[in-house]
């Protein structure tokens, strides 16, 4: 087994240098925005994520070490295996990320990353503290190990994937050449992902290759006449790291405690964020449907559909 470096550890000085550069660029041009309270919250969440990774990482490591013996193949360490593993890991990332937005149990963890109303390089580092406890790695991390890719290789390409995603958290980079925008996840595509405008909600889940979104119908181009508004549907209004970390978990506990049946409890726990038994709260699907209905009415096309059944938001082709 080759001695693989930790890409994230190597990248940290580069991250710091790029954040300083973006802050200076923001000050000089106004093309990005930073606010000390928000910056502090994002960076403290990032540091906490590293600490929790060290403290709780053994849970995932123990799982992968356990399942490694059931691998279908022994793929080994050939150069091409790294390339294949990187692409397949990104495919798995797409689905893992998509489920992180559509299952409240996993959203409670991932919402941390979306909780800033700013969008700059520090937002990339705003990461959850309790990720290993959600057990998402069992559902999405096991596939490549069971196929036969070495655990260390899967961890290595996963770290490369995360390092790639750092630079796309910026407003300073406009759209890139067409072929890059077609294949790769870019700042433009990821701005859409972080935006709460109804047309942008729950779109562009990709990590490195945006082709997954194009393939599975979740792609949305950044529109010139629809400026991204960043954050979450119900913004927090606080930079307190503990509130940022725990707020959705607290919400789940409160809702489940108040549930009137097992079905309701399961809905609050594993349903989409914003789910409620009577539909009185707004999930992304409901917001998008209301918005589509409103757009249709504004355009004189009727707009009589029920919110749940309304057509999905238009997906302009690139």
């Amino acid at each position: 087994m080759p001695n693989l470096p930790d890409p994230i550890l190597i990248a940290i000085p580069v991250f710091v240098a790029l954040i300083v550069a973006e802050m200076i660029y923001a000050r000089l041009t106004g093309h990005a925005r930073f606010e000390p309270g928000d910056t502090a919250a994002s960076l403290i969440m990032g540091m906490g994520n590293v600490v929790s990774g060290v403290a709780l990482g053994f849970i995932a490591l123990a799982w992968f070490t356990f399942i490694e013996r059931f691998a279908l193949f022994d793929i080994g360490w050939a150069w091409w295996a790294f390339a294949v593993c990187f692409v397949l890991d990104d495919f798995v990332y797409y689905w893992s990320h998509r489920f992180a937005h559509t299952v409240r149990w996993w959203w409670a963890d991932h919402v941390v990353h979306h909780s800033s109303q700013h969008y700059n390089l520090t937002t990339a580092l705003r990461q959850p503290w309790l990720n290993p406890l959600t057990l998402k790695f069992i559902f999405f991390g096991s596939w490549l190990v069971l196929l036969g890719f070495p655990v260390a290789m899967v961890a290595f390409v996963g770290a490369l994937n995360l390092v790639y995603q750092f630079w796309i958290h910026t407003e300073t980079v406009p759209r890139l050449p067409r072929w890059i925008e077609y294949v790769m996840n870019t700042p433009s595509h990821h701005r859409v992902h972080h935006a709460t405008n109804p047309v942008y909600l729950d779109r562009n889940y990709a990590g490195v290759f945006i082709v997954w979104d194009r393939l599975f119908g979740t792609f949305q181009k950044e529109l010139d006449d629809e400026k991204c508004r960043y954050g979450i549907v119900k913004n927090l209004g606080t930079d307190n790291p503990l509130t940022i970390c725990f707020h959705e978990w607290v919400g789940i506990v409160k809702d489940v405690r108040g549930a009137k049946s097992v079905r309701e409890a399961l809905g609050y726990w594993l349903g989409p964020p914003g789910w409620s038994p009577d539909g009185s709260r707004d999930s992304s699907k409901i917001i998008k449907a209301k918005w589509a209905e409103r757009q249709a009415a504004l355009n004189g096309a009727g707009g009589t559909a029920e919110p749940e059944a309304a057509a999905p938001a238009p997906q302009p082709a690139e």
Partner: peptide
């Protein structure tokens, strides 16, 4: 350092 730098250069 980054938080301090952000405070120092202002812009918000």
């Amino acid at each position: 350092g980054l938080i301090g730098f952000n405070r120092l250069i202002g812009g918000w």
